[in-house]
Design a protein around this nucleic acid. Structure first.
Lengths: 159, 159
DNA sequence: TGATAAAGGGTTATATTATAACATATCAAG
DNA sequence: CTTGATATGTTATAATATAACCCTTTATCA
């Protein structure tokens, strides 16, 4: 499975697959997926929404880890650097990556009602941001693309 | 002038035009462009970059206004609600709007080197975010679209 | 006009998000 | 084993943002 979207699915398999994929990516990159980093990724994978760093910290503490803020931020930073998680700017929060490829440019669909975050791929350089950049002579190095709205599940529940 | 981009231009005229436009928009909307709000807008217009709320606050204080944080945040919130300024999520900062129309969906080009922010219009619903939303059955209500990179001036200066 | 509701602004305190700085521990390479 | 690099633990604090309260100004209308 490359992308989960808002569809319901087997979540335990989803977590296992995410952890396995993370192991492969880190091995290939020569990066160390330590128990702490793995645990933070597991926390993110267990939700289908973005978690704030202090929420992650709370989960760590509930797991018996007496962590201080830098512990969460450093692990999250590692995951983001290696493409295993993404930062959602609009929410000051982090979400597990649900795409396989490295170096993808994601666009996020964030549900206001339930907090779920779907991740879709896109072509940086193509489309309207690319056109605007070319028109201004601007060289794009990173893109933040986040849409807020309502997911189909929540519209079905409260239309 | 509808858009400034990264081109150099007459800045005093730029500020005056922005304030005049703000006056028209507020009059049309029945909103009050009070001296404080006008002053904050003027501070934003005087730079071509995004300013943090505390930077705005610092400018207010230098102008003799003994302001506390809520003063800046409330004025910025007003400007954003009325489309006179935009919040740049990636920077936790605010920039004066450089487009005429109300209810436009902006995309921002943010230069890493000089901090300048250019604003381009776009068609929400069209393009790749719209396509991703349709594919997921997601209803988009607001979009954050921000590109980080280098502007032509900075690439010319340090290629 | 004067009462009154609604909006704006002043101020204090505090919540939330994020990082600097330094000590200790663990790992990988020679 | 030792050494350099990476990771983690810990304290303190910086940076961003808002709650809550009070008073003033503005708009509305009997």
């Amino acid at each position: 499975m490359d992308e989960t979207g808002f569809a319901t699915h087997d979540h335990s398999g989803c977590i296992e697959a995410g952890l396995a994929r993370a192991g492969r990516i880190c091995a290939a990159a020569g990066a160390r997926l330590t128990p702490l980093r793995r645990q933070v990724l597991e926390i993110l994978l267990a939700e289908h929404r973005a978690l704030g760093a202090y929420e992650v910290l709370e989960h760590l503490r509930q797991n018996g880890h007496p962590a201080q803020p830098p512990v969460a931020y450093r692990a999250l930073d590692f995951l983001v650097r290696h493409g295993l998680a993404h930062r959602i700017e609009r929410l000051n929060a982090f979400v597990a990556c649900s795409h396989s490829g490295r170096d993808h440019a994601p666009v996020f669909l964030i549900c206001r009602a339930c907090g779920a975050v779907a991740e879709a791929g896109w072509q940086p350089g193509a489309g309207q941001i690319g056109a605007a950049a070319r028109a201004h002579g601007f060289r794009v190095e990173a893109v933040v693309a986040e849409a807020l709205g309502t997911c189909p599940n929540c519209r079905a529940a409260a239309p």
